[in-house]
Amino acid sequence: MVIPAQTLRHSFLRHNKKFPHVWCPGCGNGIVMAALLRAIYRLDVSKDDIVLASGIGCSGRMPTYLDFNTLHTTHGRALTFATGVKLARPSLNVVAIMGDGDATAIGGNHFIHAARRNLNLTAIIINNSIYGMTGGQYSPTTPFGARSTTSVYGHIEHDFSIAELAVTAGASFVARATVYHAELMDRLIEQAMRKRGFAVVEVISNCHVQYGRRNKLGGAVEMIRRFKEQAVTVSRAKRMSAEELEGKITIGVLKDRELPISTEEYKKVRQRARASRGGKV
């Protein structure tokens, strides 16, 4: 089902917020935003029940434009605020939007612990392999050898995989898409939001302005086309060797498992507390 862009605009963009937005033309952030809105449209939950939290970075500006309960937190901390919101009001559908630096450098500790804790939250990480907002410094996902404003001689550290980190840390659901695969992305986000448990969607995105340019990867179109060429589905990746997977981007659902959810477990804690001496309040 194709959802007309106009429907999305009229349903979800804030009418009293002055546009234009802060993003560069061609930035992948807009593609992720549209995918998120399509997912929410299909989920058919009241806008009043959605909380969109973000950290700091280009990606962090997304909630400003959207007509939900929106929370633009501090750099790296979106998941901590989201945790408080969700625990205080579990009926809310809470989504955190983060950048690669935001979620896995300064916020890395929160990210792994949110995954381990397994609250019923959705985390979307826009991974553009760079600190976009601050002008193109290297991030935890900048590849070895790449150029950034703080690695002009070539990057000497190794990147890690955000999705695999989430799997290892214990997330219930982990998926990956690229901004080329916009429709896959909205299905994955929808699945993540439906999932009971901590659900992560990593989106490989283009920052042609700060990353593409310095690494001779062309503009937005060239970068996005490259994502198409690099992408292999989870099922295909399973039949490929490690060497064949070099330089590829595995897309699809990487992990989907049922684990106890801490909001549910906490209900039991409350029952136990009431039944014990602590309950004599």
Binding site: V51, A53, L71, T73, T74, R77, T80, F81, A82, T83, G84, V85, K86, L87, A88, R89, L92, N109, H110, H113
Partner: peptide, 18 residues
């Protein structure tokens, strides 16, 4: 929480949720 930064973050989130 995993540290004090997270602790006050969660406190702010809870307060915003009423």
């Amino acid at each position: 929480m995993e540290d004090e930064i997270a602790s006050i973050g969660a406190v702010i989130g809870a307060s915003l949720a009423g």
